[in-house]
């Protein structure tokens, strides 16, 4: 059964949030969903770029106040 997890990488700078996401992605199972919270604006474009390159799924990207909520799904 797939799981969802939230990774709080607020107040860390590039490439900290992306590295956090990648660390958790390695540990996740196929089908799991990860939500990354980040206050680093560059992360909002870096994460979709990384997802596209490595072939996972970008579920959603939304900025709520000062915080980006980037949701991705592990597909392989």
């Amino acid at each position: 059964m797939s799981e969802s997890k939230t990774i709080d990488a607020r107040d860390t700078f590039c490439p900290g949030p992306l590295m956090e996401l990648i660390t958790y992605m390695k540990q996740a199972n196929v089908g799991d969903t990860l939500e990354l919270l980040s206050t680093d604006n560059g992360t909002a474009s870096d994460v979709p770029e990384w997802i596209k390159k490595v072939g996972h799924e970008m579920v959603s990207s939304e900025k709520v106040g000062e915080v980006w909520h980037l949701t991705v799904r592990k597909t392989k």
Partner: peptide, 12 residues
């Protein structure tokens, strides 16, 4: 404090 140290990044 939120800047990841370079040694940690190389380790990653």
């Amino acid at each position: 404090v939120g800047v990841p140290p370079f040694k940690q990044l190389f380790k990653h």
